[in-house]
Amino acid sequence: MPVKGMPVRRPQTPGLLSTTYLPSIFKGMWITLRHIFRPKVTMQYPEEKWTLPDNYRGLPVLVKDDDGRTKCVACFLCEYVCPPKAITIQAREITTGVEKGPRTFDINMLRCIMCGYCEEVCPEQAIFLSKTYNLVGVSREQMIFDKEKLLEMGGVRHDPIRKWGRLLDPVGAARAAAPASEAGR
């Protein structure tokens, strides 16, 4: 049994004027002309930049506290939680104040997905997602940011809770270093 299709209207052959394209050209130029006198909406990117929202998640950075101490104590929780395994830490023992700190702290920014888990998991409030979003480098090695670079990017961040304050002031530190036989309250 033959199938019956639905009749389709084909466009009619264009008129003489349309074949010259002139109506369309003038129409387009009229639109362009109108926009010349309207307010500009395009952002001139490198010269002009976004105001980022407070919860913007850019590259992670390390911070120092008001005393200039690197806040990271190398607890490795960020390395553990990091989904793309971008963070690599080596710890070291330090003799003043808090016993432990990072010897190296590398973030491979090519791997980083700016998820913010590191900031969320950090028990020391030592790592934050900055608002830096332009990541430029000419080699893979340049994209691995070391501790010094991360600290420079992070700068000082004021923290009202001085968690290790007792160990950092001279009296508390001397007491913590007293031998067991002289210990007491």
């Binding site: 016993e99 007792r166 508390g172 913590a176 270093a177 007293a178 031998p179 067991a180 210990a183 309250r185």
Partner: peptide, 10 residues
């Protein structure tokens, strides 16, 4: 909290 010696080389 009560404080005691830390990192004591025993």
């Amino acid at each position: 909290k009560v404080h005691w010696p830390k990192r004591y080389d025993i």
